[in-house]
Simulated assay, not measured.
Amino acid sequence: MGTRDLEGKVAVVTGGTSGIGLRSVELFVERGAQVVVGDIAADAGKLLEERFDGKVGFQTTDVTDPEAIESLVALATTRYGKLDVMFNNAGAVGDPSTIAELTADGFDGVVALLARSVFLGHKFAIRTFLAQGTPGTIVSTASVAGLEGGWLPVGYAASKAAVMSIVRQTVAEYGAQGIRSNAIAPGVILTPFVSAALGVPGDYADDFTRYVEDEKVFATLGRPGLPEDVAEVAAFLASDASRFVNGVSLPVDGGATAITHNQFGPALYAAAQRFVESKSGATETTTA
C-alpha cells in the first residue's frame, strides 16, 4: 500500500477496460504511471479516460490489427513522451470446440486474438524501445492452460503456449539490449467475464465469488483468484523491482499447477451450476 514504484513510467495496457486489465490500469496509475489503454469497448474506455483525467488515455483498438497496435504505441509516445511498459492483456476464450470439431477458421481466430496480438505488442514496443534508446519491459497475459492440458479449449491453450514462446524468444533476441519480457499465467480468476462464461448472470458475479469461497472449491488457498491478484504481479513485472527477472512465465494460480490431476476446473463448473440453481429456486419462491 502506498508504493509509487511506477512513478514516471508510461505504460500501454490492452484489454484495459474490464477484469484484470482494468484493475491493472487502476493499480498502475495508483503507483505513479501514466497509461494508454487499448480496447474494443469504446464507451468503457472513454469513461476510464474521464475518470483518470490526464493520467489515462484511451484508443479504440483491434489488437489483431498491426496498424492499430502501432497507432496505440504511438499514442503513448505522443501524449506522454516515451514508452516504458507494454502490457499485452487483451483476450477472450474464443471458440470452445474440441480438436475434432474446431474449424481452421475458428482456430485462426483464437490464435489471432491471443497470440498474434502479443507478437504485435512485442514488435511495436521493441521498435519504440530501440528508437528512443532506453529499454523497457513487456508483460503478457498467458495462462495455466499454456502449461497443462485440460484447462480450456485447444485454440486458447495453444495460443497461450505461444505467448510463452514469444516471451522466451524476445529474451534471446533483445535481452542483451536490456529489454525484458515476462508472462503471467493466471489460473482461475473470477472476473465478471469468467462468471458469465460459467453461466452466472452478471448481477450475481460478486455473490458467486463469495459462494465459491464459502464452498471451499479451491483446495490450495481456499479461495478463487481475483483480478487484483494478477494486477499486483503485473505491476511488479512492470517495475524496476523486477529488473533481473526476464523470460519468466509465472503461474498466478494459488498453487493449482503444483498439484497433479487437480480437479479445480470441474469443481468450479459444478459450483457454478449449484449457484445458478440456488438463485433460480430463490427467484421462483419469491415469485410464487
Rank of each mutant, 00 (worst) to 15 (best):
A125G: 02
E284W: 14
V217N: 01
F124I: 05
A100Q: 15
T61Y: 10
P251W: 08
V139L: 09
S249G: 10
V233N: 01
S239G: 14
L27H: 10
V118E: 00
G202C: 11
Y211L: 06
T78S: 15
T141M: 14
S24R: 04
V245F: 05
Q132E: 09
A76M: 11
T287H: 15
T260L: 15
V25H: 00
T103S: 14
A115E: 06
A235L: 08
V252W: 03
G91Q: 06
E173I: 02
Q59Y: 08
L6N: 01
L152D: 12
G81E: 05
F28S: 00
N182L: 03
L190Y: 09
R243V: 09
E101R: 11
G8R: 01
N88G: 04
R223G: 05
N246V: 11
A76K: 07
Q132P: 02
S18T: 13
V154W: 09
M86T: 02
S117T: 01
Q273F: 10
G32K: 03
V36T: 07
N262Q: 11
G133I: 06
I189M: 00
I126R: 00
D95H: 08
T137A: 09
A270E: 02
F124K: 01
G225Q: 00
E277Q: 12
A92M: 15
L6I: 11
A161I: 14
V230G: 04
V248N: 03
Y174A: 00
D53T: 15
V230M: 13
D65G: 01
V194H: 03
T134F: 03
L147Q: 05
V245C: 04
G2M: 11
L120R: 05
G225T: 04
Y204V: 04
F52D: 09
E26F: 05
G106Y: 07
G199N: 05
Y204C: 12
S24L: 08
A162L: 12
I184T: 10
A197C: 06
D39E: 07
V12N: 06
H261V: 14
D53H: 11
D62M: 01
R31A: 10
V217G: 02
L147W: 10
A258W: 02
A112F: 04
L237A: 00
D53W: 09
